[in-house]
């Protein structure tokens, strides 16, 4: 069984966001980069499946500049067999459909049985690429998965919805996007980190993927960020430090009479 895991390098969730000059992107100078937290659940699930079956290959794939190779190394250290780094200046400024187009071009020739991704990449918060990838590869998908069971020729997945879970049946191959709760991602062991250094990472650019450069990146983007701003500052609130009794009475009164929310 061949499993592909699409991962993305994203700013640490504790990062304070600052807007870069030009007002269209975030200032990357003080960002600590991590593997997108949801992609770790995706990677863990792929590794668990391979281990349970005692055979197969797990391929980690990412799109990004040179720094993104670090994310692939992390995946290799967790246990992925090899990495695929899709990198080309022409990919910069891609919207979700552009990213899915690049991933589809790289993944199609691998004919995987399963494709995993995180349910979304923190930062851009689009929640689109997994489903778009499935559509472009003409595969079924299940998103926001918290439980996965493989069976002959197919799978059963629990998918998180408002106030509950949908139990979804799908045929294989299938694209799965991982939600927190699916598993507990492992930490890379020292042995894993050493082994990762010897594992191959293959680089591919637009030409190697047979992609028309105009169909991806900023040129091909159907959605573009025109402006990026900080949210408007919040006015200072009223904080009560006196005795609890008075504070509670006053806050409930204000919620009722001033804010009119209860």
């Amino acid at each position: 069984m061949r499993i592909v895991v699409a991962v993305k390098q994203v700013p640490d969730t504790e990062t304070k966001v600052a807007i870069a000059a030009g007002g269209r992107s975030v200032d990357e100078s003080s960002i600590t980069w991590i593997v997108n937290p949801y992609d770790e659940f995706a990677m863990e699930e792929a590794l668990k499946i391979k281990e349970a079956r005692g055979e197969g290959e797990v391929v980690a794939v990412t799109i990004g500049p040179a720094r993104a190779a670090t994310a692939l190394r992390t995946c290799l250290a967790m246990g992925a067999d090899r990495g695929l780094h899709l990198s080309d200046p022409a990919f910069e400024g891609s919207d979700s459909l552009g990213l899915a187009t690049i991933l589809a071009a790289a993944i199609r020739p691998l004919s995987p049985d399963l494709i995993f991704a995180g349910q979304y990449a923190v930062g851009t918060d689009n929640r689109q690429v997994g489903m778009m990838l499935a559509e472009l590869l003409d595969l079924p998908h299940v998103s926001v998965v918290t439980k996965l069971e493989l069976k002959e020729g197919g799978l059963t997945a629990h998918r998180e919805i408002e106030g509950g879970q949908e139990i979804v049946e799908s045929t294989l191959p299938c694209v799965i996007t991982a939600q927190k709760g699916l598993n507990e991602p492992r930490y890379a062991s020292l042995k894993g980190i050493m082994a990762a250094k010897k594992k191959p990472i293959e680089e591919k650019d637009a030409a190697a993927l047979g992609l028309d450069r105009a169909s991806v990146g900023e040129t091909g983007a159907r959605v573009k960020i025109a402006r990026l701003e900080m949210p408007p500052p919040k006015q200072a609130g009223r904080i009560f430090k006196d005795d609890t009794e008075t504070a509670v009475k006053e806050v409930v009164r204000l919620l009722h009479e001033e804010a009119k929310v209860i």
């Binding site: 919207d95 979700s96 459909l97 899915a100 918060d125 689009n126 929640r127 689109q128 690429v129 997994g130 489903m131 778009m132 499935a134 559509e135 472009l136 998908h141 998103s143 926001v144 998918r159 998180e160 919805i161 408002e162 949908e166 983007a221 159907r222 959605v223």
Partner: peptide, 22 residues
């Protein structure tokens, strides 16, 4: 919603349309 987010992305890819989320 859980359904809308799942569906919209699939539709956008099918139509080749741009999608702004949330």
């Amino acid at each position: 919603s859980a359904m809308g987010r799942d569906l919209a992305a699939r539709v956008a890819a099918r139509l080749g349309a741009g999608l702004a989320s949330d």
